[in-house]
């Protein structure tokens, strides 16, 4: 009797292990219809749970932020000084830009390519529990015009892109996901590269494959490059703020062709995001 039970237990275990491998293989072959269906069915429940648990999340968040507040304060003061300097420089540059535009007779329409996009606001309803996958689910989907690869932003900057879209929900691959790679450039230095994450550290991105100019680029802003060539175009419009260069040692720039970037968007505390729909398909 006992042996029969053991045999049955082992058979079920073997079946479950084989089942896991079959599912894994099926997923990597591109079959995700079943997941989409389940996600669509449960997204309203997740949305309700998300709203109901918001006060509790805020309470825990308050404790966490209190621990960080002291370090944050001094960092913000430094940033404020830099921002003032940049604002003055920016105003001068805008004035010069307007004068130069008049000289070459350019139209004065919106300069940011993002203006061609339509924003769809979504609420974050679920988040991946592991750092190896950095994704969130939002309560807007293909029914709202959201499509795969649409850029996603928050009030602070770029957050990621749509990885999959169902009728009532969609999954956002964050900048910190290991599969994320976005062409970006440092402004005003003009150095271009590819923004990649450092898995496990949501406050650090790596701007890789950069052409070192030997210039000091620490503290400069990083924005999306938004390239367009031979009928192909980046999914991201040019000029979306991504982050700020925090570490740019000469060795890393010369030997590894990379610098470190802190994302503007707080990717760990996202409540609402905006999906930029329609832009590159128009």
């Amino acid at each position: 009797m006992y042996r029969k039970q053991v045999r049955r237990r082992r058979a079920v275990l073997a079946l479950l292990v084989i089942g896991s491998f079959v599912l894994l293989t099926a997923t990597y072959q591109g079959s995700r219809g079943f997941q989409g269906g389940v996600s669509t069915i449960f997204s309203p429940v997740q949305s309700v749970a998300d709203r109901a648990l918001k006060p509790a999340r805020d309470l825990v968040g308050w404790f966490d932020k209190t621990f960080d507040a002291r370090g944050e304060n001094s960092r913000l003061k430094e940033q404020l000084v830099k921002a003032r300097e940049q604002a003055v420089a920016g105003q001068v540059a805008m004035q010069e830009n307007a004068q130069l535009r008049k000289l070459v007779d350019l139209d004065t329409g919106p300069t940011l390519a993002a203006s061609a996009y339509k924003e769809v606001t979504g609420r974050v309803i679920a988040r991946s529990p592991t750092v190896w996958r950095s994704s969130v689910s939002i309560d807007v989907g293909s029914g709202d015009g959201v499509q795969v690869d649409d850029p996603v932003i928050s009030g602070d900057g770029l957050v990621g892109r749509i990885a999959s879209a169902e009728p009532g929900s969609s999954q956002v691959m964050l900048l910190t996901d290991h599969a994320s790679a976005i062409s970006a450039k440092v402004v005003p230095a003009g150095v271009q590269g590819v923004i990649k994450p450092e898995v496990g550290n949501p406050e650090d991105l790596v701007l890789d494959f950069i052409d070192s100019t030997g210039k000091e680029i620490r503290g400069m802003a990083v924005v999306t490059a938004g390239w367009r060539a031979q009928g192909l175009a980046s999914h991201f419009p040019a000029g979306l703020p991504v982050g700020e260069v925090t570490r740019a040692s000469v060795f890393e720039q010369e030997a590894n062709q990379q610098v470190h970037v802190r994302p503007y968007a707080d990717l760990r505390n996202l409540d609402f995001v905006q999906v930029l729909t329609g832009g590159s398909r128009q």
């Binding site: 479950l16 292990v17 089942g19 896991s20 491998f21 079959v22 599912l23 894994l24 293989t25 099926a26 997923t27 990597y28 995700r32 079943f34 997941q35 989409g36 389940v38 996600s39 449960f42 997740q46 679920a126 991946s128 996958r133 994704s135 689910s137 990885a163 999959s164 169902e166 999954q171």
Partner: peptide, 12 residues
């Protein structure tokens, strides 16, 4: 399924 991630990893 809910996160539309690769099936099987978390299960395993």
């Amino acid at each position: 399924c809910l996160l539309v991630e690769a099936l099987g990893i978390t299960s395993l």
